[in-house]
Amino acid sequence: MPDQTKIIKDGAVVSDEWHLVREETAELPAGPCIVPLARWQAERDTLSARNDIAVWLASDQSPRLLGDDIGKLPLIAVDFPGFADGRGFTYGRELREQHGFTGELRAVGEFMRDQLAYLSRCGFNSFALQNSDLTAALASLKDFSVHYQVSVDNPVPIFRVRAN
């Protein structure tokens, strides 16, 4: 049975159909699964035949390790082993901006509500946020309405807006 936990996705609280498989060797439950990168690499042929398998990257695993599979995956998750580990912010932008990933990009792990705004600017559109009131947390997605930099949600930096 897939978990009926709630997540934030595309700015709303929704039920989650994906099962996050943390262990490399666990028996895969029925239904959509997010597997560790190593598992994907080891069983790529069988797993890629299914269309309900996604991959999660640990914080020391660059999206580059997925190579051309990026375009084929319905969902990629990035794990935050602690909220202070900011590597996933870079992975998010690289997936969206350099690898052209258009599927669901999900943050999993120990990130916190107050990082939602930056995560979403880095291209994440779903958040398996733990220990938080998800409905209240939606507000944190909208902490800022203007931004200086180029980012996934803002392809035009302010200096170009001002010049017009």
Binding site: F89, Y118, L119, C122, F159
Partner: peptide, 16 residues
């Protein structure tokens, strides 16, 4: 100033 704006609330580099 140009780079202050680049760095301010840079979403990618707040948890270095």
């Amino acid at each position: 100033e140009i780079l202050r704006q680049w760095a301010t609330f840079h979403p990618e580099f707040a948890f270095l």
